[in-house]
């Protein structure tokens, strides 16, 4: 009996170790206009800035947290989080092949590839006409440093969610929500938005922010979808299995993006206010006006006690998750629209 208990304790300790590396500290990686700001979550101060020359629209950490990918419309920058330096710049734009990286890049689960959505306009030399193919799902091999595959995807595919237990598939957040095979390019609709299931309302969804962290994450991608009947649906995608669940909101709060608490019980939303919603009931349990104004992205500390909303303007607001009490703000030297938390 004692042996069994000891085994259980050892197993629990090992699992916890997988969740939070021993002695790891939380940092916010906030890439914005021309600078990446790195914030120490213990002191809530910027401890380092990394310079580049770009307007950043997306970001994502790798699954092991060792790399942080940030992208402007034309380039992807690879940041080594151990040294906090840019170790590679991937440029896809040329005058004749105008490639825009539409949304945040998504690293594959094995870390070998980077998935991206591209909007491409091809120009013919000395001919005043352009060719506009459909948007592309692109697989970029990070070791070979080349695009190895690309597939047509529907317009307005703006987020990629890799599935941890099924690396052959990703979830694409598009006009509808799709399960996409990265080997064949085939996809199936798992939830209609522009083309809803019979009897269901059309759903409007601004899917730009995939707020997640490599460790101590809920494992759920939450997304707010607004129905043509005036409803709010929380779309919850299990990042491990790709399974989709929905919760109807009791109140129609207005969000840019959402993040789930590490235990998956609550969802926090931000725009001009911050909200805390119980996912068991869809009820708003706390809300507060954001004193610094609109914010786009969210992050939580590993212990789930502090919520960060921002940037948008040149700051990030800090909140106590238990009460949604405003703690203060972290000034930045730049605007931005995305951020991630990495523990190291």
């Amino acid at each position: 009996m004692l042996t069994k208990s000891m085994f259980a304790i050892a197993l629990a300790t090992a699992l916890l170790g997988l969740c939070v590396p021993a002695g790891a500290k939380d940092f916010l990686y906030v890439p914005g206009v021309n600078y990446l700001s790195i914030v120490d979550c213990d002191t809530d101060t910027v401890v380092k800035t990394v310079e580049y020359n770009d307007y950043v629209i997306g970001c994502s950490p790798s699954f092991d947290g060792k790399y942080f990918y940030i992208n402007g419309w034309r380039n992807v920058y690879v940041v080594d989080t151990r040294t906090d330096t840019i170790v590679d710049t991937l440029t896809f734009w040329s005058d004749l092949s105008r490639v825009n990286v539409v949304c945040s890049p998504a690293p594959s689960v094995d870390g070998n590839s980077l998935y991206m959505i591209w909007s491409v306009v091809k120009k013919k030399l000395n001919v005043p006409r352009l060719t506009v193919p459909p948007w592309q799902f692109v697989i970029y091999d990070l070791k070979k440093k080349e695009v190895t595959k690309s597939f047509d995807v529907p317009w307005n595919t703006t987020a990629i969610i890799p599935i941890e237990k099924d690396p052959e598939h990703v979830i694409l957040m598009s006009q509808d929500i799709l399960k996409f095979n990265v080997k064949t390019g085939k996809y199936t609709k798992i939830k209609g938005q522009l083309h809803p299931e019979e009897g269901q309302p059309m759903l409007n969804n601004l899917i730009i922010w995939v707020n997640w962290a490599p460790t101590s994450d809920s494992g759920i991608f939450p997304s707010p979808a607004y129905g043509s009947d005036g409803s709010l649906t929380y779309i919850l995608i299990d990042r491990k299995t790709g399974n989709l669940k929905t919760v109807t909101g009791e109140d129609v709060n207005v969000y840019y993006s959402l993040i789930c608490s590490p235990d998956g019980k609550y969802v926090y939303g931000c725009m001009d206010e911050v909200y805390k919603v119980d996912l068991a009931t869809g009820k708003t349990v706390a809300k507060a006006l954001a004193p610094r104004g609109t914010t786009y992205a969210e992050a939580l500390t590993s212990d789930g006690k502090k919520l960060y909303t921002g940037p948008s303007g040149n700051d990030i607001m800090v909140w106590d998750t238990a009460t949604l009490k405003y703690i203060g703000f972290i000034p930045l030297k730049h605007d931005g629209i995305v951020m991630s938390r990495i523990s190291k």
Binding site: V102, N156, N204, N205, I207, I208
Partner: peptide
Amino acid sequence: WDQPVGCTSI
């Protein structure tokens, strides 16, 4: 139709 005309699903 072919230009990226919006961010939202509809």
